[in-house]
Design a protein around this nucleic acid. Structure first.
Length: 657
RNA sequence: GCACCCGUAGUUCAGCUGGAUAGAAUACUAGACUACGAAUCUAGGGGUCGGAGGUUCGAAUCCUUCCGGGUGCGCCA
């Protein structure tokens, strides 16, 4: 992609195929290349890309800058003024709709003009050309300049751009992010253990993050890291052999998880009998472990066989959630490398010996001591994380590394990242641990001892029950296959939305009944909103209103503009358009903050606005042909935006429900 | 003992790099369907933003300190 001279780090040339020529000038003005002011201002790249696609916001900012130049010139000031990109970033949505579409807090830039914010806001309001292309009215309210957008102009750009999906496709064409390779590691289940709802939250967060980063234009490698070795597996196998049990024909992985739980109980019971009994068992388990590590014999064969059961089970879970990994790492494949790492960095001085063991001394950084090799010569979990990180840097050439892991491991990852830094990896500073809180039950914390954990198996069974209920409603009316698909989409969406709609740092209350209640801030509410759009569009097509929303044509823009020029834009339409317009901003923020909840909330408010619009103004029943077409475009624009957003959360809405 | 995270309406949560009168959902109360599908919408009450200081034009947001809850802190993963 060719760089365009004069507009800093913005590359508008690559968007020729998507943007219309008339918009290019606008962007150049907005970024300062056609303006005399601050051409050397360094923009914040990531946020600006999304801004450059928001012609409405930039257009308004451009018109404000034009007035600002006049105002400043009158005072003899020509330098140090903000660019349109800065203005656009500062513009807020006013607290009350009737105040306008944007509010510009003038205290952000008046210092360079040596003026009071109230005065600047008032004079700017008088200077702004309301005959200009984007601004219909501008009035001051104290230090704020409240701006009402030229609605026909805005709608004519926004609605076709969203309905066609061009505005979303453009996001991935971001040169600023295209050269940063990101690896996102998530899921990380242990074989021979239960797959519980905590793992489900991890899958939802991780896969959504992958989507968000890809949407923002990053090349993303999605990876999994499976724990397939360690004493927990030896315990499980020890129990199976001792109890002489055999696996069922199906769901063998789940069965292994149950056997592990039984093993733990049996172990505790046996160990409480006497110290001798405990020692005997410990010896037996060590023998199993050695057997596995010897890579030969019955214990090793049993490990191979049972390990595969777990892996098969994991695959079925991933299929259920529609997640895919580009690469799957195993603990067992980095074991040997971890030993080599210990040797190498012991010599380099990054590691030191202590009490017969080896580790990294992180006390100067208030992170304690990170053990990498035990006295018995074995490496640890942390050592393998170091080995894996090195592989990620060296073999996969990644620039940023993201780990989605529960908050219990905050300390662990601080240690790992600091140690990687001490080992000399410059990418250590680009490592990020997305820490998330626990999944708790409505009546309190989950604990395996209290016997109130929720496994994926239980979740799946509960949802199958809910599934059947939904199934019954349309039996005989819809094709059986569609009923099954729809019910599945609803359940999957309910779970994903419930897992993602609140801040990752906080615990999430797992309340299946609420999530599936279909009322309020739930996945089904959003999906229902989507089906309403499809219902209208289907009916429109049936009535012969064939509008091709797949392309944003000039003709289409003209029609929307004419319709809203001749008819008032209802408040509900204006508000809905706002949420559509701010979608890319929400997606970008969601990505950069590692918080899918930001996007989830945006989608929820957008749906609220749509449902108000739905009851407030007629669409198909609109008598004026042009207005009806414009409103149909609004419906299509909202539907496309919502579908895009749900997709980023890993949710596919049904077409009807 | 030390470190990190959380504390906003009865409950579950929003609140963007500090911005105008702190917003939703739920529950409760009162309304709106000869339907662009009411799995929806409208209206109402409900809050010392854990407490106290500080920073400034301005603090739920930033700093300090205390209180409450959680997690973790060299031979597990």
């Amino acid at each position: 992609m060719q760089k365009t001279h004069g507009i800093g780090q913005f590359h508008v040339v690559g968007f020729h195929d998507i943007l219309q020529k008339s918009e290019l000038n606008l962007i150049q003005i907005a970024h300062g290349s056609l303006s005399p002011m601050k051409p050397d201002l360094e923009p914040k790249v990531n946020l600006s890309h999304e801004l450059s696609l928001d012609h409405g916001r930039l257009g308004v900012a451009g018109d404000v800058v034009a007035a600002l130049v006049k105002l400043a010139a009158a005072g003899g000031i020509t330098e140090g003024l903000p660019t349109a990109v800065e203005i656009a970033r500062w513009m807020e949505r006013p607290p009350e709709t009737h105040l306008g579409d944007y509010a510009l807090p003038c205290f952000r830039f008046v210092k360079s003009m040596k003026r009071k914010p109230d005065e600047v806001a008032r004079e700017l309001g008088n200077l702004i050309d309301t005959k200009s292309s984007w601004i219909a009215a501008a009035t001051s309210a104290g230090p704020f300049l409240n701006i009402t957008v030229n609605q026909p102009r805005l709608m004519s750009w926004l609605l076709p751009a969203a309905a066609s999906g061009n505005i979303f496709k453009s996001m991935s064409l971001n040169e600023a992010t295209a050269n940063t390779r990101v690896m996102i590691e998530y899921s990380q289940p242990n074989t021979h253990k239960e797959f519980h709802v905590g793992h489900v939250r991890n899958i939802c967060l991780g896969s959504s993050l992958v989507n968000l980063f890809r949407y923002s234009g990053y090349p993303v490698i999605a990876v999994n890291y499976i724990g397939d070795e360690g004493t927990h597996i030896a315990k499980c196998l020890w129990h199976i052999k001792r109890a002489g049990v055999t696996a069922p024909a199906t769901k063998k992985g789940e069965w292994l998880g149950e056997m592990y739980v039984e093993a733990t109980r049996a172990l505790e019971a046996a160990a409480s009998v006497s110290p001798d009994a405990k020692a005997k068992i410990d010896g037996e388990i060590s023998a199993v472990l050695r057997g596995i590590e010897s890579k030969t014999g019955t214990d090793y064969n049993l490990w191979c066989e049972t390990r595969q059961w777990s892996l098969d089970d994991f695959d079925s879970v991933y299929d259920w959630f529609h997640v895919k990994f580009d690469r799957v790492f195993f603990e067992s494949e980095v074991s040997e490398e971890s030993q080599e790492i210990v040797e190498k960095y012991l010599q380099s001085g990054a590691f030191v010996e202590s009490d017969g063991a080896i580790g990294a001394d992180l006390k100067p950084y208030k992170l304690g001591f990170m053990l990498v090799r035990k006295r018995d010569g074995n490496t640890l979990y942390a050592t393998k994380d170091l080995a894996l990180a090195r592989r990620k840097f060296d073999q996969f050439k990644i620039d940023r590394s993201i780990y989605v892991v529960a908050s219990e491991q905050n300390h662990h990852f601080k240690q790992v990242f600091k140690t990687l830094d001490l080992m000399g990896f410059k990418q250590a500073k680009q490592c990020f641990h997305l820490s998330y809180g626990m999944v708790v039950l409505p009546d309190g914390k989950m604990s395996s001892r209290a016997g109130n954990t929720v496994t994926f198996k239980m979740l799946h069974e509960q949802m199958t029950g809910a599934l059947n209920q939904i199934l019954a409603k349309y039996a005989g009316e819809w094709p059986a296959e569609e009923i099954a698909t729809t019910a599945k989409q609803l359940c999957e969406g309910a779970v994903k939305y419930g897992m993602l709609c609140s801040d990752p740092a906080k615990d999430v209350v797992f309340d299946m009944e609420n999530w599936l209640s279909f009322e309020g801030n739930t996945g089904p509410y959003l999906m229902y909103s989507y089906t309403r759009t499809q219902s209208i569009l289907r009916k429109a097509a049936d009535a012969g209103l064939k509008i091709d929303f797949s392309r944003a044509t000039v003709v289409h823009e003209g029609a929307v503009r004419a319709a809203y020029g001749a008819h008032n834009v209802a408040d509900s339409e204006r508000e809905l358009a706002r949420w559509i317009q701010d979608f890319n901003h929400a997606a970008t923020a969601s990505c950069e903050n590692y918080r899918p909840s930001t996007l989830a909330n945006h989608l929820f408010y957008m749906c609220k606005a749509f449902n108000r619009f739905y009851t407030d103004v007629p669409v198909l029943k609109t008598t004026d042909d042009a207005l009806r077409q414009a409103r149909l475009t609004m419906v299509a624009a909202f539907g496309a935006t919502l579908k895009e957003g749900l997709g980023l959360m890993g949710i596919t809405p049904p077409e009807r429900m």
